[in-house]
Structures are given as C-alpha cells and as structure tokens.
Amino acid sequence: MALLSPTQSVLLVIDIQERLAAVIPDAEGLVARTGILLQAARHLGVPALAFEQYPRGLGGTLPAVSRHLPDGAIMEKMAFSVAAIPAVRTRLATLARRQIVIAGLEAHICVLQSAFGLKAAGYDVHVVADAVGARRPRDVDLAFARLRMEGIGITNCEMAVYEWMRHAETPHFKTMSRLLRG
C-alpha cells in the first residue's frame, strides 16, 4: 500500500442519499468532508464517481455532495458492492488508475462490500474514515476492523488531500489548505 497519488486515484462516493443521511450520526460533518474530497479531487485531477442505491426509495444524492460532481458522475445501483456492477468495472478500467478512495454510506454494507470487491479485483483501496458512516457507531467500528484485516487502507480526509498534493509547491496548495481549515 502506497501513499495516495492524484494520477493513480479515483474517488468513489457511495450512497450519500437523502433518506440514508437523515439517520446517520454526524451526517453533516461526513457530508462536509466528502465535499472537501470532491473539491480537492476536481482541483487535483482525480476522477470522481458517485453511486445511489435504489434512489426511488432512498432519495437522490444530497445536493451538498452532488453540486461538486461532474455531469454524468452519478450511477444508480441495486448491488451493494459497486465492484459487482459491470458498467462500474468498465468505467474504472477505462480510467486506468489503480487506487480507489472511498467515502460514503453505510460503512458495514455498501462501503465494506465495495472495498472488498475492488480489492479482490486488484485495486489498492483506501476508505476515508471521517467521510464514512452508519446508523450505529458500532457498525462503523466493526467495518473498519474487517477492512484492516483484509489490508484495506483507512485514511481520513486531510491525509488523502495532502497525499494527493504531495508538497506545498503545488499551485493548489493555498486553495486546499483553506478548504481543509474550513
């Protein structure tokens, strides 16, 4: 497992949807950090994709997240793992990047199953701990324990952004620094 690279990463935002987010502790903070990740990804050339689990029932991606996504970046799904969706596998293969950075809901279901599936497909997977949640905190803890046991990286928003930047001489350093300080 290596430091995150902006030329090798893809950011995946999983199921940050209206009805799910409404029952997640600290959803506001999670959404804010996901927004930071998306803005950093845009500035630093990291492609981003977002997913919606059964949007007719769970609602759409929260506007605070979707406003940072490029057109066509949101894909509907019924599978819990994004790795189980042929169109996702094709899109990731087209991007030709080996690192996957994951934010989203819920840690112990769609995030965990996606991370396991992507790791099994040969990707270097990193889950952003402070941009991931679940209805019950113990489910997040259990998910992180299982992810670690499988060799999946656990990072946070600030670590991911600074790893993507690598140094303070990047033209985006001041923008990213302000963004992270809030």
Score class of each variant (00 low, 15 high):
12 L>S: 04
63 P>T: 05
8 Q>Y: 06
145 A>F: 07
117 G>N: 07
109 I>S: 08
46 V>T: 11
40 A>R: 10
124 D>F: 04
162 Y>H: 14
107 A>P: 00
111 V>L: 01
77 K>L: 02
102 I>A: 01
18 E>F: 04
45 G>Y: 15
141 D>M: 12
72 G>Q: 10
43 H>Q: 15
163 E>D: 12
1 M>N: 04
160 A>R: 08
118 L>F: 02
10 V>C: 09
132 V>N: 05
94 T>E: 15
170 T>K: 11
92 L>P: 04
8 Q>W: 03
86 P>L: 04
178 R>A: 15
51 F>Y: 12
22 A>K: 03
17 Q>W: 05
114 S>Q: 10
180 L>R: 13
123 Y>W: 08
141 D>H: 07
22 A>I: 05
131 A>E: 04
62 L>P: 02
123 Y>S: 08
50 A>E: 10
111 V>S: 02
68 H>Q: 08
11 L>N: 06
41 A>I: 02
85 I>W: 05
122 G>A: 03
96 A>R: 14
172 H>W: 15
88 V>T: 11
20 L>W: 01
154 I>V: 08
140 V>F: 07
57 G>F: 05
86 P>Q: 07
128 V>D: 09
116 F>E: 06
32 A>E: 13
28 E>L: 09
174 K>S: 12
136 R>D: 05
152 I>G: 11
160 A>H: 09
38 L>V: 05
102 I>S: 01
